[in-house]
Design a protein around this nucleic acid. Structure first.
Length: 100
DNA sequence: GTCGTGACTAGCC
DNA sequence: CGGCTAGCCACGA
């Protein structure tokens, strides 16, 4: 199994209305220091509609970025039930999903 | 096989 | 408190 496949798999495990941080995902995989590779994998993900990359945010609750545009990501999150304000998650810890 | 880049994070000034 | 630098991993050329 490739690293980026694991990333997508964990992302798919994120329930609707919840979000996860790159760091948590990287930690779940086993390489907490690979958070950079996590985002990188999603960016180049060939599973655009399958990989729910928009549910992944930065450790500070910031959007960070999105292949289709941060604004689009925010919109999607809002539709999922995640409140976002000024490019940041409102109840970040409240909607934060942990793989623990 | 080596260099450069990227949707990051934590620490330092 | 805010901005900048260094370090980390994986992938593409």
């Amino acid at each position: 199994m490739n690293f980026n496949e694991s990333v997508w798999k964990f992302i798919k495990k994120i329930p609707k209305g919840k979000v996860a941080t790159y760091k948590e995902i990287a930690r779940a995989i086993g390489n907490v220091n690979a958070f950079r590779a996590v985002g990188n994998a999603c960016n180049k993900n060939p599973h655009s509609p399958k990989a729910l990359c928009h549910r992944v945010v930065a450790a500070d609750g910031k959007i960070g970025g999105y292949a289709f545009g941060e604004k689009k990501k925010i919109l999607l999150l809002k539709k999922e039930g995640v409140a976002v304000s000024n490019g940041k998650i409102v109840d970040f810890e409240n909607v934060l999903y942990k793989f623990d």
